[in-house]
Each structure stands twice: as C-alpha cells, then as structure tokens.
Computed example of a mutant assay.
Amino acid sequence: MRNMHGSGALQVTIEVPIPVARLIRVAGRLDRSAARCVLRLVDAQLAVAAGGHRAVAHLVIDVEAVSCFEPGGLEVLRDAVPHADRHGVTLWVSGCGGRVHLLPLRSRQALGLFRTFPTAELALDALAGAVAADRPHRPPAPDPAAYRIATPVPQPRRAVDAHVDGPGPAAALSG
C-alpha cells in the first residue's frame, strides 16, 4: 500500500511470516493521516480474522523504517489496541528499540501504551516460539539481553502489497 500525502510518502507492506501473525511494515512519514491509513489496514486484517478466514492471533506493526514521527501518529495507532483486543488479536509495535530516546515526547508517551519489541525479527522469533510451544496468545516477554545479540538474517517472507491512492476503505488482502 502506498499513500502520498504532504511532502512524505507512506509505504506499507503486509507479510505473513507465520500462520498466526501478520507483520505490517510501515515506512516513510508517520503523521495522523498516515496512521489512519495504517488503521484501515489493521481493521481489514481484523475483519479477515473475525470472518474466520484466517487464524490471526497477532499483528505486529513495524515502524523501523519510519523516517519521521509527526505529532499524533502513534497516538492515532493506539486506537487499534482495544479494537484488536476485542477480536482476540494482540497488537505489537516493533522497530523503535534503538531510537526511543530520539522520538518526540508525545510519541514516546504513546509508544508506552503498546506492547513492544525492539525489532520485528525479535517479535517474530518470540511469537514463533510461542506457537511452537502451543501458546499462541502468550508469547514470552522480550529479554533485554537479547537486544545486544546479533539476530540471524531473516528468512524471505511472503509479502502482499496493495496500492491506495487516497482515503477510502483498504481492500481485503489475501495472505
């Protein structure tokens, strides 16, 4: 999904790294408008899960490639947390591990309301471990010591891209 607004471009990719999780990678400028586009995509994934089409237990929103956190971007995304909870889906945010202290105060405060992992790879490793242990809804808490350990190169994941030219409902994506 790509959406142009203002002087920045939002790029969003959905990946299916493990059957019970969707990884939503966000790149570009994250302002309120961009966050609303991501929310529509989250809503579409929750609708697919609620319809019984896929057993989605986790959504990971990776913001590692976000170049600029505008005021309110993460605040808008936090609206997805209770919505995901109502659908029995755990929402995670990853990718702020090494730069939390660089974020604007409002973004740091909003980030504190999410379940987080420092990287998407650590999140997926933890979720995959939980699935392997037959605990899809309760992955282990990330180990701070693991943040200093080099992670293996991630395996290629199946990606689904969509293109959105402006506001409007996000198309249901098959994954």
Rank of each mutant, 00 (worst) to 15 (best):
S174K: 01
L91R: 03
V60Q: 11
L41Y: 10
P156S: 14
G95W: 09
Q109E: 15
P82V: 00
E75I: 12
Y147H: 10
G168W: 00
A146L: 03
D31V: 03
G72T: 12
R115I: 06
H163P: 04
V48M: 13
W92T: 03
V81L: 09
A132M: 13
P136F: 09
R36C: 05
R36F: 03
R36Q: 13
G168P: 00
R29N: 14
I24F: 11
A84G: 02
G129L: 02
S94N: 03
E15L: 06
M4F: 12
D43G: 12
R78A: 08
P136V: 00
F69I: 06
S94T: 07
S33Y: 07
G112Y: 07
P144R: 04
V76H: 11
R158K: 05
L23P: 12
P140R: 09
D31R: 10
T90Y: 04
V164W: 10
A50V: 07
V20E: 14
Q109T: 15
A9P: 07
R108N: 07
G8T: 08
L59T: 04
T90P: 05
V56F: 08
G6S: 05
L127G: 00
V48E: 15
P136R: 13
R29C: 14
A27C: 11
P142Q: 05
L39A: 12
V164Q: 15
P82A: 00
G98T: 13
P118S: 07
L10A: 09
P71R: 10
D31C: 10
P17N: 05
P142D: 14
V42N: 02
R106K: 14
A65W: 09
E121N: 13
P82G: 01
D31M: 06
H163Q: 15
S174G: 06
R135D: 04
A162K: 00
T13C: 14
R32P: 07
A49P: 06
A128R: 13
H137D: 01
D85I: 06
A130F: 03
A128W: 03
E70H: 11
S94P: 07
P169A: 01
L111C: 04
R157M: 02
W92I: 06
E64I: 07
V63I: 15
L111I: 02
A110R: 10
T151C: 05
T90C: 13
H83N: 09
V100W: 05
R40L: 10
G97I: 01
T116F: 03
A170T: 01
V66T: 01
D79P: 05
A123T: 00
Q155M: 14
P156R: 06
A27I: 08
A141G: 03
V66Y: 04
N3F: 01
D161R: 14
V42E: 07
V48Y: 04
I18D: 12
P71A: 14
R115Y: 04
